[in-house]
């Protein structure tokens, strides 16, 4: 028998595995309730010096987490290096901005379109691009992100370089008002969607699609030899990632009320990628941890903020060299059984 190493992850994992459904249900409820209650927290240790903690909770924290979970399906699960994730975010934001101005639809009715257009973009880009591998794909997606931005700058119909202003927020729902002043409803909305997305991604991860993605990440040729329709599953990963990005973009636009192409630069793609890599590619909890840390640290340590891209650049190099798999790398909980012969 192998000696058990003492670490929190294993201790919690063992406990979770032996827990009864009721215990699990209670734990889940408590954790989720805690997250919903975070905006009420008023603690100088946690508070951020310049922006109020409530609004930091919405942006960057939970919005980064949402995007990171979406990008993780692409990069972490399937091993497709997407450097243009911001394009999907931009498409979602512009969908909400343009459609709310041109149609009578409200935010909630536009959301499916925001996701749908982002998915469509994923399909259109993915269909040709996903035939390529690794580095080539990285460059193509990077180009795609930039191209979307250049097109936005040069297209007067969607505001050109000046962008779009006076974007309406979401209409009230379940008694929640979405005003510019109060970030909390946006946080709760995004958190709710994040939970739904996590639920969906976990569900897929434990079944055939999850295995197909992992197999592709591990060895694409062999996955294909083992009957995995690699192109189809890579496309799905891309489309799902795109949908989540589009969703995040629409929420973002509805909160900040005016958008310009310059909001959607490569830096944001890299930022989200850094969350994924830093947290632990392929592990959804690691990725969320990464998003929370990388979103929070610069807000807390305001002096870092100006230098944060320098910091991230350095972090990526150092992290890759020390822990190529991130803070909380994906790890299957291995079980050892004695052979009964």
């Amino acid at each position: 028998m192998k000696a058990k190493a003492f670490n929190l992850r294993d201790i919690f994992g063992d406990w979770w595995e032996s827990a009864t459904p009721i215990q699990r249900g209670i734990t889940r409820t408590v954790v989720i309730a805690t997250f919903y209650a975070l905006p009420f927290l008023n603690n100088p240790v946690i508070d951020t010096p310049e922006t109020s903690f409530k609004s930091v909770l919405f942006y960057p924290l939970v919005l980064f987490a949402l995007m990171a979970v979406g990008l993780n399906v692409v990069v972490g699960k399937s091993g497709i290096l997407d450097l243009g994730y911001v394009a999907f975010f931009a498409i979602g934001a512009y969908t909400h901005a343009v459609m709310s101005a041109r149609t009578s639809l409200n935010f909630w009715e536009i959301l499916p379109f925001a996701m749908g257009f982002a998915m469509l973009a994923g399909l259109i880009l993915g269909l040709p691009a996903l035939r390529l591998r690794g580095d080539y794909l990285a460059i193509i997606t990077l180009g795609f992100g930039e191209i979307i931005r250049i097109i936005a700058i040069n297209t007067e119909a969607i505001g050109g370089a000046a962008g779009i202003t006076d974007i309406p927020g979401p209409t009230p729902i379940f008694g929640f008002e979405f005003s510019v002043m109060d970030p909390r409803p946006y946080y709760w909305l995004t958190l709710t969607l994040l939970i739904l997305v996590i639920w969906g991604v976990l569900r897929l991860s434990h079944r055939k699609p999850g295995r197909a993605w992992e197999a592709i990440r591990e060895d694409e040729d062999v996955a294909e030899f083992m009957g995995v329709a690699t192109l189809k599953y890579k496309l799905w990963a891309f489309i799902i990632g795109g949908a989540v990005g589009g969703l995040a973009g629409a929420i973002y636009a509805s909160k900040i009320r005016s958008i310009q192409p310059e909001l959607f630069t490569l830096n944001l793609s890299i930022m989200i990628l850094a969350c994924v890599v830093f947290g632990g590619m392929g592990n959804i909890w690691g990725v969320i941890l990464g998003a929370v840390l990388l979103g929070y640290i610069p807000e807390k340590l305001r002096f870092l903020s100006d230098y944060r891209i320098i910091f991230f650049g350095l972090l990526m190099v150092v992290m890759m060299n020390i822990r190529p798999n991130g803070l909380m790398p994906r790890k299957k909980r291995e079980k050892f059984q004695e052979k009964i012969s």
């Binding site: 290096l81 580095d135 890299i270 990628l273 890599v277 890759m320």
Partner: peptide, 15 residues
Amino acid sequence: SRLSSLISAIGASFF
């Protein structure tokens, strides 16, 4: 993995 090298290079580039 090549992904690690690429990410490390992107980090260097950003830096």
